[in-house]
Design a binder for these strands. Structure first.
Length: 420
DNA sequence: TCTGGGGTCCTAGGACCC
DNA sequence: TCTGGGGTCCTAGGACCC
């Protein structure tokens, strides 16, 4: 058996943990740049029908009139709260697959004879007691069924956020209960295609011939179909796989026309992604830089361009990547546009001990330089050392807007909650 | 005026190899 | 006149996830 543990309205719940005055009140969390709603707690969802990813400016009045509290996203806080939850889960199973910031699959094989519902309740209660975060627990023989069980745990009254599929009757019953779009792995496009054949429940989907599923939804759809019948096709991952691509691209706080400021942001992102790359002991062969204007805006002239640089020798050196990135950016930058976003993406990622060197390469790396660079930044703070191109004093000229960010309660001494 | 960010997997088609 | 057979690698596009 597999359990899926998922935090309820995770970002909003994290904010509420440190603001007990907001208990039982509507809370929403906004995306970067305070652009869209990305999380809303049940009170906020109940109050108004808040569509996720709706631009905030369109619904701000509606939210304010209903006394909803807003937060800008505070990923430092959410990431650290997530670590706490995942550590607790390790007390319940030797195998925990962290699937995302707010959910994990855990292996319960060998425990089938136990009272799994009681076990699920114990997980739910311990996480609440240790972190203050509410979670839902779904337990079933496969991942896709565990996802459905988790959904039912939360949505159906009387389950107290724990639901177990441990018999054929419960499996069939849950498949009838679930709509097609509730199935993990079936998104908007496939839902529509399936509904066009006159099928509406997850059960109906399992009655479609496999040949149809295979033809229209490839092998990915076939796995989902099989998992719903109780056949395991998606094994738990024992260890996190190294990333195949590492990228970052954020909208500027305001539209930028000047190349020099875009350069700053670009070097900042390169610094960030190369640090992630080094943390997994890898090097990258390709560096992609892209630049874009605001495609939502009708009156602005539009421009998008990207360039992928093939590095002579795969590297994770911030300085080499910065030099290459700057050259690439100069090639695609065209004056006269109001730019909204610059992005960088590293790919062709290989473990650093397998890097294929090049006899004629002109780059020369100082051994140990980046290790020292990272250690100093870990000890004294994120940008204690940075390439000169990245002028941290100018950051406010392009950085994202986060007007309502809560304190970083758990990671900054100066921001620790004070109890009187 | 203001519209998120970071990923994965699969397939088809083209270019190329011997 | 007749024009093979077995591959790999890369990219773009589509679908999905949180």
């Amino acid at each position: 058996m597999i359990a899926l543990i998922d935090c309820n309205s995770f970002y909003a719940s994290c904010e509420q943990v440190f603001r007990p005055d907001l208990k039982g009140k509507p809370v929403v969390v906004l995306s970067n740049n305070d652009g869209c709603v990305i999380a809303a707690n049940s009170e906020a969802k109940a109050l108004t029908d808040i569509p996720m990813f709706e631009p905030v400016f369109k619904i701000k009045d509606q939210l304010l009139n209903n006394g909803v509290t807003f937060f800008s996203s505070n990923y430092t806080l959410y990431g650290e709260m997530s670590d706490r939850v995942m550590r607790i889960l390790q007390e319940f199973s030797p195998l925990v697959e962290i699937y995302s910031i707010d959910e994990s699959f855990i292996d319960l094989s060998g425990m089938e004879c136990q009272d799994l519902r009681a076990y699920g309740i114990a997980i739910r209660d311990r996480i609440m007691r240790y972190t203050g975060l509410p979670v839902g627990v779904g337990i079933a023989p496969t991942k896709v069924l565990a996802k459905l069980a988790n959904r039912r745990a939360k949505k159906e009254e009387g389950n107290d956020h724990v639901f177990v599929i441990d018999s054929e009757e419960k499996r069939i019953d849950t498949l009838h209960w679930a709509k097609i779009k509730d199935v993990w792995g079936i998104g908007r496009k496939h839902t529509k295609r399936i509904q066009d054949t006159g099928k509406y429940s997850a059960f109906d989907f399992t009655q479609l011939p496999l040949s149809w599923v295979r033809k229209h939804m490839t092998v990915v759809g076939e796995r989902t179909w099989r998992e719903l019948q109780g056949e395991n096709c998606l094994p738990l991952e024992h260890s996190p796989k190294p990333k195949k691509a590492i990228g970052t691209a954020k909208s500027f706080g305001k539209k930028l026309k000047k190349l020099s400021l875009i350069e700053e942001a670009c070097s900042y992102y390169i610094n960030e992604v190369s640090e992630v790359l080094r943390s997994q002991d890898c090097c990258a062969k390709y560096l992609k830089i892209f630049l874009e204007t605001n495609y939502h805006s009708e009156h602005d002239r539009q421009y998008y361009n990207s360039i992928t640089v093939t590095l002579e020798v795969p590297t994770n050196n911030t300085f080499i990547l910065n030099t290459e990135g700057k050259k690439a950016l100069h090639q695609i930058f065209k004056p006269g546009y109001r730019y909204k976003k610059v992005g960088v993406c590293l790919s062709g990622i290989v473990p650093k001990e397998y890097v294929q060197t090049n006899l004629f390469a002109s780059t020369y790396e100082k051994v140990g330089l980046m290790e020292a660079f990272d250690r100093i930044n870990q000890k004294f703070g994120k940008t204690t050392l940075a390439p000169a191109l990245m002028d941290t004093r100018k950051i406010n000229q392009w950085e994202l807007i986060k007007e309502e960010r809560s304190p970083r309660y758990t990671t900054q001494w100066k921001e620790v909650l004070c109890v009187k």
